[in-house]
Design a protein around this nucleic acid. Structure first.
Lengths: 240, 240
DNA sequence: TGTGTTATCCATAGATCTATGGATAACACA
DNA sequence: TGTGTTATCCATAGATCTATGGATAACACA
C-alpha cells in the first residue's frame, strides 16, 4: 500500500495536538494553568503558589509558552504570565470534567473532602446575586489573598482557608455563609464549608468558582475590600 | 508556613488529571482515541490503521485503559476497544478546538490541504439531510472502508480517499458532491473536495464528520450499501 | 490434548523529560 | 557605570517513557 502524502497530513495534525497534550502531562503544569485562569501572576508568585523552585517554574512556563497556552507581559523586573484566552481555561475545565466522569478516584476525593458540603445543594450564581442584594448572606472567598485581590465577587470577604479555623467565632450561626474558590476542581470552598458546618454554622458552596463567575459576565471587584463582618479586621491581617 | 493536609488534596486532584493528560501526550495515542471515537476496533485493526507494531499498539492501549478512557470487549480471539463514553470524544474535540485556536500551524495545515475546500462554505447537517431527500446530491464517505461499515450516513457511497483519483470519471460534473470524514481534525474530506474541484466537479465538505453526525442523533447505516452512482462497482472493489 | 490466532506481559536499550545549580540577561535605581 | 532583583538559559544527573522481540495467556477449533 502506498504511503505517500495522502496520510502524512493527519499525522502532522496529531503531532500538533500532542504539543498541547504535553502541557497537561505534568500535574504541576495543570496546577499552574489552573492558577493562571484565576488571573495573571509573576513567575515568583507562581513558584510560591505551587511549591516549585523558581528555575523549575520557569522551565514549566517555557513549555506552556511553546504550546501557546500562556501569554506574558513584562513590567519592570517582573514577567507576568496569564492563560492565553478563554479556550485554555475551557480546555482545563473539560479535562476536569472528563476526570470526574471517568476516574472514580476523583469523585471519591471530591466527595471525601467535601462530604458534608456535598450533601447540601450548591448555591447557584443567580441565587447568590439575589441574596447578596437582599443582604441575608455572607459571601466568603477562601482563596489566597492574592487571588482575591486579582478579582472577587463584590461584597465577598477574603478569608484564606488556612485562617478560617482561627476566626470561626466571627461568624453568626444565624446567617448563612456561601463560600467559593477557584472552581469545580478546587477543594478550598468544600473544605471551608465542611469546617463551618462542623462548628454549627450554616454554610454552602457556590456552584463552580471565580473563573466561571467571570465567564458568566457577572460583576467582579478588584483589590482589597472593607470587611462587612461584625468584627472589623486590620488591613494588615487581611493582606497576610 | 505550614504545609499540612490543607493543600494536599488539590495536589492529588492534579495528579489524577495528569493521568488523563498522560494519554494525550503521544500523537499516536491521540490518533488511536480519535479512531476509537469512530467505532470499536480490534487491536490488530488499530495497529494497521496507525502503522504501529502490534505490541506497541497494545502498550498504548494499556495506558489508555489505565486512564479509563477506553472500554474493551472480548469476542473469541479478538479484543475490541472503544472510547469509554461521549465525554472522551468531547475531550478530544476540545483538544482539537484549542489547537486550532492557539496553534497557527494547525490552522495552516488545515487551510493548506483544504485550501480550495475551505473557500467554499461547508454543508450543514440539516441542509444535507434535506438535499439527500430531494436526491440532488451525492454523499461521499472518504474514510477507510472499515469505518464506513461501522457506521455511515444513509445513502453515502464509500470511496476511500486513496481510490478517489482512479475513479473520478464516475462523478457527474452536474451533480454536487458532499464529502465527509472523521471530523474537524480529519483532512480526508477536505483533500477529497480539493481533488474533486480540481477536476471540475462541484464538491463541498460536510460540517464536522461522522462522530458529530452521530451525536446529533441523526440516522446511521451500518455495513455495506449498494452504490447509487451511475456505474455499479463490484462488492470486492468496494471492500478493498 | 494439539495447533493456530490474537492480545498481553516482561525485559530492556535508547530516547525524552524533570529538577536544579550556576551563569547570564533584562531591568530599576542609585 | 555599579548594585540589586527577577527571570531565563545552559548543562546534566537521574527518572520516566517508548518501541519492540520474545514469552505467555486466552481462546477457537480440530
Amino acid at each position: 500500500m502506498d504511503n505517500t502524502k495522502t496520510y502524512e497530513a493527519p499525522v502532522v495534525i496529531y503531532e500538533q495536538l500532542a504539543r498541547i497534550g504535553k502541557v497537561v502531562v505534568h500535574p504541576k503544569r495543570i496546577e499552574l494553568l489552573d492558577l493562571l485562569c484565576q488571573g495573571e501572576r509573576s513567575v515568583e508568585a507562581l513558584a510560591a503558589a505551587t511549591g516549585l523552585k523558581l528555575t523549575t517554574t520557569s522551565a514549566h512556563l517555557q513549555i506552556m509558552r511553546q504550546a501557546r497556552l500562556v501569554d506574558t507581559r513584562r513590567e519592570a523586573n517582573r514577567v507576568y504570565y496569564k492563560a492565553a484566552g478563554e479556550e485554555v481555561c475551557r480546555f482545563i475545565a473539560a479535562l476536569g470534567d472528563l476526570a470526574q466522569a471517568r476516574l472514580a478516584e476523583v469523585k471519591q476525593i471530591l466527595s471525601e473532602i467535601g462530604s458534608h458540603a456535598e450533601t447540601t445543594q450548591r448555591v447557584s450564581r443567580v441565587e447568590l446575586l439575589n441574596r447578596v442584594r437582599a443582604g441575608d448572606v455572607v459571601v466568603l472567598d477562601v482563596r489566597p489573598t492574592q487571588e482575591y485581590q486579582a478579582g472577587h465577587i463584590p461584597g465577598a470577604i477574603s478569608l484564606p482557608l488556612e485562617h478560617l479555623e482561627a476566626r470561626l467565632d466571627e461568624f453568626d450561626p444565624q446567617v448563612e455563609i456561601v463560600a467559593y474558590c477557584r472552581g469545580p476542581l478546587c477543594l478550598l470552598a468544600p473544605q471551608a464549608v465542611a469546617t463551618l458546618q462542623q462548628h454549627g454554622r450554616q454554610a454552602r458552596c457556590l456552584e463552580d468558582g471565580m473563573p466561571e463567575w467571570r465567564q458568566a459576565n457577572l460583576p467582579v471587584a478588584v483589590g482589597s475590600e472593607v470587611s462587612n463582618l461584625r468584627q472589623e479586621f486590620s488591613p494588615t491581617a487581611m493582606t497576610e
